[in-house]
Write a protein that binds this DNA or RNA. Structure first.
Lengths: 190, 190, 190, 190
DNA sequence: AATGAATGAGAATTCATTCAT
DNA sequence: AATGAATGAATTCTCATTCAT
């Protein structure tokens, strides 16, 4: 695979894949993705050597974007609960603003085509949050658990919260707040 | 009367589908399922008119089995926390004993081929648990939330817990207990 | 193949086949025919050893019915033109009253599954009309042609006439009469 | 630019379809057609989106070829009977030279998979012959009938004639001539 | 590098026919 | 004889990937 010439085209393919996968599931044909990206069928394969690589790159890309959203305006100096709330709200907002991306990550996460390597890379990208968790545990603010477990509970509860925000838009704000408080009670000491 | 349609064969097909889908994902060919069930390719279609129906029936079947597991020895007379713990443990045990089934339900739940009808039927099967939640809220034991939200949080946290039990078998017992306590703090008042 | 018990059932199958083939073409599944006839799938094969036999029997049956219609009230003593007109009108009326049967015979006639034997048997059933033609030629009323050719022209023109009667029902009567006159000019001497 | 779609390959597929359908009927598998055309099974579907489209295109193609044959050396200035004889002979010759094509058009014409649209397009292609008929009626040369009816009678009689030419090759020339004279008496005034 | 036609191994069904009941 | 479940070959169409242009 030669070095692809255009980063734009790569991004267009990833964006198109998100759209198409959100609409038709992960089995959607690569031809449809290429078309949605405005490139020829074969061109997709100069950017991704096969469909599995596209899937893995997309997974990494979306996870990385989510991490970026969480780090934007991250209040590094605030107390732990403030920082946790920031992460929670950033997650929720990203998911609400990008429902397609959220849906696709969910499908990718349970599909066998994402390699252990991709999952590890993605987990690594969130390690600074783990560090925050460890620090908090040391301070006694959080209950003693593997940091990854706390992170996973945040993700699980945030996903559940977003599902209900989507189902009952009128109560969205309530869910967002109540969800965080529930999370915090679940993991914090006091 | 010709040979009657066999409930055994139907169950064999459903069991085979679970195995095959757990190994190869939901796109696994129907031919492989039929073979695993020990019937001819065409026979699958006398029991399920098409693959989507197989998927939906399997979803319903697995959800129903999970509900059955939760109701076994359900301590109807015990206090709310005892009952919630029973449900939690039943869920966890079912998932740990039946990792294939758990994996397949997870894939079915995010795949577009499960109809809204199937999801509604399945949700209805768990309505008695919602009743328990409502009753508890009335008593002030649980915080005020839509009962379905509490149920969804239980599911989300239990799934997360099972993931970690699988990853760190040595700490499985610890996760099971700590997971429930976290859940209870998240939703209970005190 | 044992002797089938019920002539009624055989007729029901033939009638059902006519309906089903008219609606869905000659590839329609035997299962649909059996269902339309109110018998089980397998029962069809006690009356017809396979689908080709059903096709051939149906062809013969319909041709024979048509011949019967032509012979009903056949004016044996009338002059040739009167007799020819009788045949023409009987054909047209049969086709108009039984559009399904007409459609199915047309499909069977061009489909390779009707054996030469069936075609010969069917042709034989119309031999008395050929005799009339020969007699007329001897009298000099008809132009000298193979009798089967005259018969085939009658059929071809009658079919064309029925097509147009169907397309323009308001002019049906006109087509029926004009069609016969055209046929008569085509084959008669004067 | 990638390899352009090849008109040759399209024609090869159409020709192969004609052969295969003539031999085995219209249900012959697309795989056999592709093989006969020397292309891969999937390639057929880059030229025709599905089998029905192949059928319809073939119908149109063959009808168009027949029209072309009728127009070749068409004696536009000759009198009506000469022109009608030209059409008759062109039709017969085309049918005799191309028995496969004739057989396939016959099957397509009675099969439900040819759309009303295709039939209309094909009918339109023969409209100039209708014009000739109308002109002749105005002159009083032909009896007053819908032009399409006259055309349909020509077709019906020519088909019948070809059937008999095939059955009795020794008398072929006689049938060809006698057939036309019969047709002309059927439709002309004098 | 980009294109899109070509490929052929599947995939989900269908269906005539058989045969256990 | 009647039934309809079981069979598995056959069919249409799809799609990731290759490669000539």
């Amino acid at each position: 695979m030669a070095r692809p010439r255009s980063e734009d085209k790569r991004n267009a393919l990833l964006a198109a894949a998100t759209q198409v996968f959100a609409d038709d599931g992960i089995n959607a044909p690569t031809a449809r993705i290429a078309k949605a990206a405005g490139v020829a069928e074969g061109t997709l394969f100069t950017y991704f050597s096969n469909k599995d690589e596209l899937l893995n790159q997309l997974y990494l890309d979306l996870k990385s974007e989510l991490r970026g959203a969480m780090l934007t305006s991250y209040p590094r100096a605030a107390d732990v609960k403030q920082r946790a709330r920031h992460v929670w709200l950033a997650y929720i907002d990203w998911g609400v603003v990008n429902p397609h991306k959220r849906k696709v990550v969910a499908q990718l996460a349970v599909c066998d085509r994402i390699t252990a390597g991709s999952k590890a890379v993605s987990a690594g990208a969130f390690s600074e949050f783990n560090a925050m968790v460890e620090e908090s545990m040391a301070k006694g603010v959080l209950r003693d658990q593997p940091p990854a477990f706390v992170g996973a509970i945040l993700v699980a509860m945030a996903e559940t919260t977003m599902d209900f925000m989507g189902k009952e838009p009128a109560a969205a704000e309530r869910f967002r707040t109540a969800g965080f408080e529930a999370f915090w009670r679940a993991v914090a000491t006091s």
